[in-house]
């Protein structure tokens, strides 16, 4: 099994067997984080640039730890202190960095499509670490890995994705990835934040929180993206809380061994009750742990591939 593309931009570029290959490889990398010496020499001499044009805690730290555990040399560019702040264009920034011969760029950008644009002007590998409202492929892979740790199959699981679907790159990638594995997906959220078109039989729009959660095997709660919605889409946070928060009451409708995921950061008691998190019913921290393994696997597979 091998994967020969140089970049990971969209989950849509991966076949079902590619997804399983990434997840299987990540399982092996997960063990490295449990060793006494949490490091392997595999990527000695590889240089990786992390370009985060948007704030990030989990993804950025997780990519950096993944790189360090693989012995790569990593450089984090703080965009606010770079020449981007002086008005340099994105392509000039990348071409200049490209001249320093990095082996990979990890890109988080507020514009949808920025990593794709960058992948076309550099011969280094590019990994999309979240672009605007478009995609977040490594999050999708780590969600799939986390679900597989608890469920044998994803095929025909009922998976509810609840919240701001429209602005969520996590939702977009998760829907694409989980669909490839045959899940039944139910979407629910404020009308203004639902996708405009759905063209697949396995994706349904639920009419209520109850319909979405009822007998769900997996619930993926999304964050209310205050920075993107700026309250034009929902009347108020209080209203969102009243209608779209996952509470212990509603959760009782779900399947007995339901898994609750959240990509973080969590707005406690906005999209999900703090008590559900406190009681350990979510797998949010498993997602974070698996995030490192998935990113190690992505780097290993992409940088190791024989691509032209």
């Amino acid at each position: 099994m091998s994967y020969v593309k140089k970049d990971l931009i969209s989950i849509n570029d991966l076949s079902k067997s590619d997804i399983l290959y990434f997840v299987e490889t990540a399982k092996e990398f997960k063990k490295i984080s449990l060793q006494d010496i949490k490091k392997v020499p595999t990527m000695r001499g590889k240089t990786i640039l992390n370009l985060f044009f948007e704030p990030s805690t989990r993804t950025k730290t997780s990519f950096e730890i993944a790189q360090k555990r693989l012995s790569a040399d990593t450089i984090n560019l703080s965009i606010s202190q770079s020449s981007v702040a002086k008005g340099e264009s994105l392509s000039d920034t990348i071409l200049n960095l490209q001249a320093m011969k990095p082996d990979a760029f990890i890109i988080r950008h507020y514009e949808s499509g920025a990593p794709f644009f960058i992948s076309n002007i550099t011969n280094a590998s590019v990994i999309n670490a979240g672009d605007g409202i478009n995609e977040h492929p490594t999050q999708c892979l780590l969600d799939i890995m986390t679900i597989f740790e608890h469920k044998k199959e994803i095929k025909s699981l009922k998976i509810a994705i609840i919240g701001d679907i429209f602005h969520s790159r996590v939702a977009r990638s998760d829907i694409a990835g989980l669909s490839k594995l045959g899940a039944e997906i139910y979407l629910y959220g404020p009308q203004t934040l639902m996708p405009r078109f759905i063209n697949s039989d396995n994706i349904k729009i639920a009419g209520s929180m109850e319909t979405a959660v009822k007998e769900a095997d997996v619930i993926i709660m999304l964050r209310v993206q205050k920075e993107r919605t700026s309250f034009y889409f929902i009347p108020s946070i209080e209203e969102y809380r009243n209608y779209f928060k996952l509470t212990s009451e509603i959760l009782k409708l779900a399947s007995k061994d339901v898994l609750i995921l959240h990509p973080g950061p969590v707005n406690r008691d906005v999209e999900i009750s703090g008590s559900i998190i406190n009681s350990g019913k979510t797998v949010i921290l498993d997602q974070v742990e698996n995030g490192i393994a998935i990113r190690m696997a992505c780097l290993y597979i992409l940088l190791g591939g024989r691509h032209s």
């Binding site: 392997v40 020499p41 190791g304």
Partner: peptide, 20 residues
């Protein structure tokens, strides 16, 4: 032990990572 990640030519031979 699986030596895939410890090879001195990590990427010359593309191998599936197995468990140590």
């Amino acid at each position: 032990v699986d030596i895939t990640l410890y090879r001195d030519d990590s990427f010359a031979v593309k191998k599936t990572v197995k468990s140590t």
